[in-house]
Design a protein around this nucleic acid. Structure first.
Lengths: 340, 340
DNA sequence: CATGTATATGTTAACGTTAACAGAAAGCGT
DNA sequence: ACGCTTTCTGTTAACGTTAACATATACATG
């Protein structure tokens, strides 16, 4: 490997002079600077960031911990984060925890060991608290995106889940739906709880009884082998109840997609037989005109803002925590039902 | 920051003994080991990977350079790579070059400086050659995935683009289509050239004239502001020709989606008015039954295999280069056309 | 009991870079 | 010419870890 010493030897100067040229620090004569630059060029010298990091204590690296980069919501968020990190001349280390706190801990420990300058975290669940305490203990700045953990104080960028869930539910209610099946995420995840609140608030406001048998909690994750059967069983179970649901509200895109499949399999058509509402976009390119009502969160902004907040935090570790709540974009579809 | 020295002091041993416990090397008495472990625990010691890397020359990090993680094809590939890297106890640094060789070079230089143990690269275009020479010069092992650059020898995992393009084209021809509009990618990208070959071979075999006015080359990228208008103009132009195309073949999912939009805007229905074929899945969840014929590449495997090959290469830098060609999964749809 | 061998621990230097200080040379005012 | 500042370059030590070597103790062998 070519080191500063090789360059120094070739240019007939000391290591320090080369270092000064690299960091174009003050007071190197033009003559010397040229000689050094030529030597660097000829040897194809590239500074060793590792050695630099060891001294500076900074790695120009941030960790991004998300649930699953295969989900377009997280992908878009990650892209926003990557672009922002790039602007700050930082690189992104990507980690998928699949909503599994053990995997999350593994990654967190690896990132601490790698001495990342900060982390952007979508926590796996409320049980992530002890993982996050490890991060705090090491004074590594981090920002929550999409999800928070109540017991942990930190900057965060989240969507207004409860309001959007309320709006979607109210929309369905206004269309005349009185029995709305709920495919929720795990209730130890903040967003699922918030969305549940919105759903319940809307029902109460419309004086509709909350029917527990129409509420099913399932993993958010898209991994079909695990979830598909779950959603299918849930849908089947809901449609064995009486009265049957006339609408389904799924708490994210993955669950909505599984629900759509299950409904099709059960011979039910959307929107004719069942109205559907969900969080996130199921058809980002607008190809299928599915007539689904959605609350689409600005995922790119989540990632982008999260990174900017992280750098603010790094710059000023002691400032009060900041909270950014972004409004999901609502797309309300479907028509009133005629007394089925 | 807690260092090995702090632990050593607390446990009343030398740094070296702590180091031995961490790496559970031989010959540390049970008594001492326990004392050290307790001290580590109490101080929440986490080894500094940076310092380790400086000595070992390895960073347990690999760089993944792709076009755009927002495209589900690359996302899935990246996920495959991440899972495989995780298995090898390595972390992934993610880079999007957006098919821009300058951005690609920037990332490559950053990754070299970061002393990644290897790279997985989808090159931006044939012009990437000089970027890749930089990587080679630094003896950093790398593997091509999805795309290759002819002038650069390296391990690679690619799809059989020419055969699949031939198959899709032949399928359209067998259905009676005689004027097939082509929305190609940039011809300085290997996959686009291969797909073009497949298309031309099929036409020649069926003795159909190749009509250059039905062939348009556009950026692969999904960034709508740039591409959308391009595809729309191309479609409009094709349909001003005589005879008009009765089928469109797009070289990737992003282009197919733009083409669909353009066709809709032009009041044309698929598959009734125009048959569509493309590479990659446009509707991965099978929600819309678009009647599009697709050649879907095993993206996850691209990433997974790529990483495994990379580690083989790292283990054995001098072995002959390996080539893996995976067959896209064909889904042929649509019916014969009745002499329009 | 002297010798050899295994086991346990410590010391030193090195990885590649830069911060902090030191020194040399050059320029300048009087 | 003298001292003083400015400009340029070099030396040393440090970042946190580990490889390589050194030392010390215990234990077995004839």
């Amino acid at each position: 490997m070519i080191t500063i010493a090789d360059v120094a030897k070739k240019a007939n100067v000391s290591n320090m002079t080369v270092s000064r040229v690299i960091n174009n620090a003050a007071s190197v004569s033009d003559n010397t600077r040229q000689r050094v630059l030529v030597a660097m060029e000829e040897l194809h010298y590239v500074p060793n960031s590792i050695a630099r990091s060891l001294i500076s204590g900074r790695t120009n690296t941030i960790g991004l911990i998300i649930a699953d980069m295969t989900n377009p919501f997280f992908t878009t968020m990650a892209r926003g984060a990557e672009d922002a990190a790039h602007q700050h001349l930082h690189r992104l280390i990507l980690c998928n925890h699949d909503d599994d706190i053990d995997k999350e801990r593994e990654y967190i420990e690896a990132l601490i060991s790698a001495r990342v300058d900060g982390m952007i975290i979508t926590p796996a669940s409320d049980d992530s608290a002890k993982n996050l305490q490890i991060v705090q203990r090491h004074r590594i700045p981090f920002v929550f995106v999409d999800r928070i953990v109540n017991s942990i104080n930190a900057d965060h960028v989240v969507g207004d889940s409860s309001t959007a869930a309320y709006d979607l539910t109210a929309h369905l209610l206004r269309q005349g739906h009185r029995n709305i099946g709920l495919i929720s995420g795990p209730l130890n995840i903040h967003t699922a709880r918030e969305r549940m609140k919105g759903y319940e608030t809307a029902l109460r406001e419309f004086d509709i009884e909350i029917r527990r048998e129409l509420i099913h909690s399932l993993p958010y994750s898209l991994h079909e082998d695990k979830t598909l059967l779950g959603v299918e069983l849930s849908i089947q179970s809901m449609f064995r109840q009486s009265p049957k649901p006339t609408a389904i509200f799924a708490f994210n895109n993955a669950l909505a997609i599984q629900a759509l499949h299950a409904l099709r399999k059960a011979g039910l058509k959307s929107p004719d037989d069942v109205a559907i509402a969900c969080f996130e976009d199921v058809d980002p390119h607008g190809l299928l005109q599915l007539e689904i009502s959605t609350a689409c969160q600005p995922a790119y902004t989540f990632g982008e803002q999260g990174v900017h907040m992280l750098f603010e935090r790094i710059k000023n570790p002691d400032k009060p925590y900041e909270t950014v709540t972004l409004q999901p974009r609502l797309t309300l579809r479907g028509a009133s039902i005629n007394n089925r």
